[in-house]
Design a protein around this nucleic acid. Structure first.
Lengths: 117, 117
DNA sequence: GGGACAGGTTACAACATTGTTACAAAAAAA
DNA sequence: TTTTTTTGTAACAATGTTGTAACCTGTCCC
């Protein structure tokens, strides 16, 4: 890492602690990163049941996480009055800017997994 | 994102789920991201008490998290037989290759924190 | 009327995690 | 001799989180 980056990191570390903490707590909730992960994999809008199936969790937890993501402005929820109901979730622009980080994180995991097999 | 990258992402999403999941579960534990964050900010080896103070948590939790990070090969623990004891923690080479991802994640967090003030 | 379906919500019991308290070790200082 | 310090660990009560089961809405189909 360059000196310049290092300094930026330094100053980043000194400020905005509370907000950072909030976000870290949110991202630390169970299935949260998984949801962002799978929505990141498959860029299409995704239905509730699809998300639930993919992260392998209960309706309750998935609903809770999606609600939190919506509150934080990371996903949008759109309901269609079809029969039966159709609700789709999409990452917001904001969430999409997080993609590169997640992606390189997952790549790191995979490289690691490869060399440890 | 390019088509090629998208395809890479796709194939990543189909394999090695277990490993990714392991990492996500580990990173989701309380204070885990915070610990990596502060160790990332301040690249020097860090003492137990310093980490504890910075993440504002109990000895028990900090010890648990550091143990998990050590098990996972992301930090090394070095004890010196001084009086009183001195123990330092450092990110491993492996963790350092993960830094750019975490760093950009933290940057994303900070940008968001800023704009929500 | 009675399903069936998607997409939830609510209540609650089961389970997991956290912090607190007590304790330990070792040597130097008071 | 007692205190002080750092770095933990063990036990356990308090707290937080999860999944389960039940229920709900709205509409189409039989």
């Amino acid at each position: 890492m360059s000196q310049e980056q290092s300094q930026r990191m330094q100053s980043m570390c000194e400020s905005a602690k509370a907000h950072v903490d909030d976000l870290l707590v949110m991202l630390s909730k169970s299935k949260m990163l998984s949801i962002l992960y799978i929505m990141n994999c498959d860029k299409e809008p995704m239905r509730f049941s699809e998300i639930k199936k993919r992260v392998n969790s209960s309706s309750t937890t998935v609903a809770r996480r999606l609600g939190e993501l919506e509150d934080y402005g990371l996903v949008t929820r759109t309901a269609f009055a079809t029969v039966p109901a159709t609700v789709i979730y999409e990452l917001t622009e904001d969430a999409i800017t997080l993609q590169p980080s997640l992606e390189s994180m997952f790549e790191w995991v995979l490289n690691r997994a490869d060399s440890s097999v």
